[in-house]
Lab assay of single mutants.
Amino acid sequence: MAAGGDHGSPDSYRSPLASRYASPEMCFVFSDRYKFRTWRQLWLWLAEAEQTLGLPITDEQIQEMKSNLENIDFKMAAEEEKRLRHDVMAHVHTFGHCCPKAAGIIHLGATSCYVGDNTDLIILRNALDLLLPKLARVISRLADFAKERASLPTLGFTHFQPAQLTTVGKRCCLWIQDLCMDLQNLKRVRDDLRFRGVKGTTGTQASFLQLFEGDDHKVEQLDKMVTEKAGFKRAFIITGQTYTRKVDIEVLSVLASLGASVHKICTDIRLLANLKEMEEPFEKQQIGSSAMPYKRNPMRSERCCSLARHLMTLVMDPLQTASVQWFERTLDDSANRRICLAEAFLTADTILNTLQNISEGLVVYPKVIERRIRQELPFMATENIIMAMVKAGGSRQDCHEKIRVLSQQAASVVKQEGGDNDLIERIQVDAYFSPIHSQLDHLLDPSSFTGRASQQVQRFLEEEVYPLLKPYESVMKVKAELCL
């Protein structure tokens, strides 16, 4: 049975990233139509530049190519590739079939990587351009969430054990800070992308030097003109047959890092959902379990974690691919890159769409948070109580021993009897502590235990987050809708 299948058929496997999760716009960027249309555009740009620099290419040939950029006979191309065992030459023939007058000058002087690699770089750039505003929107939604809850005390956790208090907004800023680093890295790697350009079979530009009869300047002009037509500021000066596969490492490393950030955020949300302090959106008709109707599973956060793990592992592909590119190139890269580049971007696209949807509907339960604080705060307040007693004339050592005994009794009630923490009640009825009984409410005010959390939130948002989001103001209103 021949390899390949009808990918629109229910009898043929289709990647869930495309069929179930990723956005239509990201799927289109990695589609065959987008790819092969870009090949034709690159052939047109090459012909236009070659004509401008004096090669015998007519206006009629150029116009014929322009008129057929979208006229792609995919069936013919597939048949040609089956016959020739070469995808680029299959599309040269297919393009030439609908451009008979231009057929002889299509791909003039070029090698397969002229269309293959340059198209990949265009796709990487455009895919990054799709991700950047999506990530900015996630940051914006979380920034709104953090600002609104900047002063809401909550129990902090280290080692997932109760620690000092923080605020809900401050905790959210930990998430935002990681995503801001990801946004900066995505922008950097996007701006650092260079075009492969017009380089020939081993990167020496020998074929173009021959076409222009040894004119170095025209060869350099050709490279520059096509690079500018493709919208790049610069091209690699040095290439082998391909652009260095280190570029793929750079791009997928940034995406993998984004995956790590999203995994951490969504894990926190899942843990908070278990504590009943916070939940992701839950639709009115949504079913959490087929057997347990009360369940409210954090399905979206779980999906993000599941896909983020996949995204983090994909960076190993370009690392290994770059390491086995012998001399000017081997074909070890080809099949692998067809999979890992598309999957990385479709996965990143999915987790950003999902995280935006989550961040637009996060639900906080202040009463649950308050109750958990009441359970733990008495123990945390013991040092403040000791200091207040010393100020009232008591002995630190005597007070410490009193607190120690009462704390152990209260802990026994919590752990052995399943009761509430009654340390404060014990202190309130103990005559030894009568000098500070009137101060206990103040000493137990949760806001006095959150330090500068709310001020940190305000400063972080104003100095770091809002300036970073400013270039994306025009796209901030787009909502994230999930079908599944």
Results as ranks from 00 to 15, higher is better:
residue 116 G to Q: 13
residue 401 E to D: 11
residue 456 Q to S: 08
residue 323 S to R: 04
residue 7 H to F: 12
residue 463 E to Y: 11
residue 35 K to W: 01
residue 151 S to T: 12
residue 10 P to R: 15
residue 412 S to D: 10
residue 205 Q to F: 00
residue 217 H to I: 13
residue 89 M to Y: 07
residue 155 L to K: 01
residue 56 P to L: 13
residue 193 L to S: 07
residue 210 Q to T: 15
residue 138 V to R: 02
residue 168 V to K: 02
residue 139 I to N: 13
residue 424 I to D: 07
residue 315 V to S: 11
residue 389 M to F: 08
residue 337 R to A: 02
residue 444 L to W: 10
residue 311 L to Y: 01
residue 360 E to C: 07
residue 376 E to C: 04
residue 313 T to D: 04
residue 69 L to R: 07
residue 154 T to H: 08
residue 57 I to Y: 00
residue 329 R to H: 07
residue 31 S to L: 02
residue 65 M to C: 09
residue 177 Q to G: 14
residue 267 T to P: 02
residue 281 P to L: 08
residue 423 L to S: 05
residue 178 D to A: 05
residue 97 H to L: 15
residue 356 Q to K: 03
residue 188 R to E: 06
residue 445 D to E: 13
residue 377 L to W: 03
residue 340 C to D: 05
residue 367 K to P: 07
residue 341 L to D: 12
residue 257 S to Y: 08
residue 439 Q to C: 14
residue 33 R to Q: 10
residue 95 F to D: 00
residue 212 F to C: 09
residue 73 D to N: 11
residue 475 V to W: 10
residue 18 A to Y: 11
residue 296 R to S: 08
residue 6 D to W: 09
residue 432 Y to A: 09
residue 410 A to Y: 04
residue 347 T to P: 12
residue 67 S to L: 14
residue 165 L to K: 02
residue 365 Y to L: 09
residue 270 R to A: 01
residue 250 E to S: 12
residue 426 R to W: 08
residue 159 H to G: 02
residue 193 L to H: 03
residue 454 S to T: 14
residue 54 G to R: 08
residue 344 A to R: 04
residue 413 V to W: 13
residue 7 H to G: 06
residue 289 S to I: 02
residue 122 I to C: 09
residue 458 Q to E: 13
residue 386 I to Q: 06
residue 431 A to F: 07
residue 318 P to V: 08
residue 344 A to F: 02
residue 111 T to Y: 01
residue 248 D to E: 10
residue 47 A to D: 02
residue 282 F to S: 13
residue 150 A to E: 10
residue 169 G to H: 02
residue 452 R to C: 14
residue 383 E to W: 04
residue 373 I to C: 07
residue 280 E to V: 00
residue 229 K to P: 03
residue 55 L to S: 05
residue 71 N to L: 11
residue 413 V to G: 09
residue 211 L to S: 08
residue 333 D to Y: 03
residue 41 Q to S: 11
residue 137 R to K: 14
residue 177 Q to T: 14
residue 265 I to E: 05
residue 69 L to K: 10
residue 252 L to E: 04
residue 426 R to S: 10
residue 155 L to F: 06
residue 309 R to Q: 04
residue 131 L to K: 07
residue 125 R to Y: 05
residue 315 V to D: 04
residue 20 R to F: 00
residue 475 V to F: 11
residue 69 L to P: 07
residue 235 A to F: 14
residue 213 E to I: 14
residue 408 Q to E: 07
residue 444 L to V: 07
residue 127 A to T: 06
residue 89 M to N: 00
residue 341 L to A: 14
residue 473 E to A: 11
residue 235 A to T: 14
residue 399 C to M: 06
residue 115 V to P: 07
residue 205 Q to E: 02
residue 167 T to R: 02
residue 280 E to K: 01
residue 188 R to W: 05
residue 398 D to G: 14
residue 158 T to N: 00
residue 312 M to P: 03
residue 90 A to D: 00
residue 408 Q to N: 15
residue 133 P to G: 15
residue 329 R to Y: 01
residue 172 C to Y: 13
residue 448 S to A: 15
residue 403 I to K: 03
residue 204 T to S: 15
residue 483 C to Y: 07
residue 435 P to E: 09
residue 118 N to V: 00
residue 164 Q to M: 14
residue 286 Q to C: 00
residue 236 F to R: 06
residue 384 N to G: 06
residue 350 T to G: 09
residue 181 M to F: 13
residue 412 S to N: 15
residue 19 S to P: 06
residue 412 S to F: 15
residue 302 E to I: 01
residue 427 I to L: 14
residue 270 R to D: 00
residue 223 D to P: 01
residue 308 A to C: 15
residue 38 T to I: 14
residue 87 D to P: 01
residue 363 V to C: 05
residue 369 I to W: 03
residue 61 Q to D: 11
residue 175 W to A: 05
residue 307 L to P: 01
residue 199 K to G: 03
residue 45 W to L: 07
residue 478 V to E: 15
residue 2 A to R: 15
residue 178 D to H: 03
residue 241 Q to E: 03
residue 251 V to D: 02
